[in-house]
Amino acid sequence: MVHYVVRRLATGVLTVLCVTVVLFAIMHSMPGDPIRMIADPRTPLEQIEILRARWGLDRPVYVQYFFWLSRVLRGDLGTSISTRQPVARLIRARLPYTLALAVGALVLRYLIGVTVGLIVAVRRGSWADGVLVVGSTVLRSVPSFWLGILLIVVFAVHWRIFPISGYVGPVAIVLPLLSLMLPPVADTMRLTRSEVLEVMREQYVTTAHAKGLPSRVVLTKHVLRNALIPVTVTFFLSLPWLIGGSVVVESVFAWPGMGRLLWRSILSQDLPVVQGVVLIIAVLTVISNTLGDIMTALLDPRIRAQYEGVS
């Protein structure tokens, strides 16, 4: 098990390194000159050269990469071109808002998804089952940003229960949370349902029933425990999609998080901020994928056995 965890962590670090290279390559293939973009067009050429040297933009690309990487490792993500503020500070101010949104949506999604999926699986073939199959297909076809717009029209414009946009107190999180959480909750319900149905056909479940265990115990101790393994994997794997979704949803609701910062910085071509935000998001993603893999190995004795045999 230790062997597996170490190897998985090493892969994670390697992945993050690759991400930094890819990110740097993308940003450096940009046409246009970031200095000329911010400088007054009448700025003399020498002045531009001085600025270029100050930002390190006159060095070869790979030197710039290693400079950038070593600064990043020391926690320095550079300075925003448009606001002149440290990127790390900009991100730190917004990270809690994005995490509140993403983690909140993740937890709600799995609480609701697993509960409904389980209920529907137990009552297979009932009307609730049919409603779920059709409803989840419709729900996953709804773009989260449009759901956000609809919620604004209904709950903020028509009924005026919630604020239209911005962060004006904790209640403002309700609508963004709903629009981020509802479309993927359908997938969780369906996955839980199909996994539970599959496990219920296993022989050990029949045995558990046969030896006279109450069905509630069979359901929680035998069925749910095994059915939740794939669900747990998707719990961690869904973080990247959630973050992608939150970029768009934050823009709809003017939510002061990282996604909105990323969007604004892309529109204003603020390279250091975009690099910093994408990097942080990539690191969060890799951490959550790694955790997901390790959790799966811990939960599933079959996977654990594979690696204990090796080490």
């Binding site: 993308i26 940003m27 994408v278 990539a282 993603t285 890799v286």
Partner: peptide
Amino acid sequence: ALPPLVFAMAIVMA
């Protein structure tokens, strides 16, 4: 391992 929409945005910016 990359959040697709976020990386697509970075590519579009470039």
